[in-house]
Design a protein around this nucleic acid. Structure first.
Lengths: 201, 201
DNA sequence: ACTCTTATTGAACAGGTGGTAAATAATGGT
DNA sequence: ACCATTATTTACCACCTGTTCAATAAGAGT
């Protein structure tokens, strides 16, 4: 900071700058790396100022996770629902989820489950975003069944299995278990079997 | 510590006391709670003494995880392989895995995936124990198929799906997503569908 | 120019983290 | 009874965590 020159910013602007910083830290160093000092350094500001805007790190971690997760869901939903036919939609969904650009978000999800045990707001945020994901999948699966293109399994259970596989492989990736190709085809082929459809590579 | 009386223990005894403490801390407060101070307090000893036995917290976390995971695998394996018929074995496997007494270990697994990203020895330990689990399941599945009782799916893929569901539901539990019954039946019913068998409740 | 509001800082606190060097004292061997 | 070994402690280090209080100063309104 240049001598005596303290930049002053309006509250809402600074607040969103801090939330942006929190998201960036979470995506690059994990949810556990969100701290007053890390945020302060990232914004070029002192620690107490962060406290002024975010009195509780616990809830900031939760809202940061929620922001990241909901943003991704919205993006994937837009991409997946672009096609008209359910078969193309489920293909788009799988394609979007498998995108390596999604890796960072997957890491944040694993952090959320681990930290959620001792951070109830975070646990609540995780449950909510999980429900959002399931709702998206269930909608597509129902439509496909109504069109007679998907096997008549329980949409709820199929969605549960789908994301359980997605989430597990996402965690596996953090410790480099198996290859990306193996992890991805595990999800794809199991979904193919469940719905009795063919998803492209 | 009473005045001037410093208990002195032989090295191997103290070493295993520290490792036991690490396991206890991991199971009750998570892998991330393993620290020099926590171990020292738990053993009623000063921090540098812990360093004397465990020069690296990073590797201690990894070995602690490995100890916990391998011990559980050995126990479950003994229980699952007790019956003779593969159908009874897979039932026993599922029953053992679903045991709520296993919850703490599940939490440690989720910690391992999250922390494994920045702790390579831990990641390596996770991969190894995952392979142990898969080997156990694959053996049972192969035997069942040889006996003509299980559907002729790829044993490797079936095991991968089985544990992906187990691992995901284990993570879900940390944030109280869905009920235990829902999580458990997700695993059981999917396995029933895959192998075309009936597993008791 | 002056005042009021408030964004921001500086300085401290108590406690946590892993880690090191050297002094202390208990033990086992002779 | 003495000595050598080594388990253990004491005293540090540098750095991290969240938090509080009062001082500072930038900006908005008049």
């Amino acid at each position: 900071m240049a001598a005596g020159t303290t930049r002053r910013r309006n509250a809402t602007e600074r607040a969103s700058e801090i939330r942006d910083a929190a998201q960036q830290i979470a995506l690059t160093r994990g949810l556990a790396a969100i701290s007053l000092r890390a945020l302060a350094a990232h914004c070029g500001v002192t620690a107490p100022l962060i406290t002024h805007y975010e009195p509780s790190m616990e809830t900031l971690v939760a809202t940061t996770f929620s922001d990241i997760a909901e943003k991704e869901i919205a993006e994937v939903e837009r991409f997946a629902l672009a096609p008209n036919k359910p078969l193309d939609q489920i293909r788009a969904l799988i394609e979007a989820i498998a995108d390596p650009a999604r890796d960072n978000v997957g890491e944040v999800w694993t952090d959320a489950w681990s930290l959620g045990r001792r951070n109830e707001p975070l646990a609540e945020a995780a449950r909510q975003s999980m429900d959002s994901w399931h709702a998206l999948a269930i909608g597509i699966i129902r439509a496909g069944q109504d069109a007679g293109q998907f096997a008549p399994v329980s949409p709820e259970r199929a969605a549960l299995v789908l994301f359980a596989l997605v989430d597990a492989t996402s965690a596996y990736q953090l410790v480099n278990f198996r290859s990306r190709e193996t992890r991805e085809s595990l999800v794809r082929e199991t979904l193919e079997d469940m719905l009795d459809v063919s998803l492209g590579t």
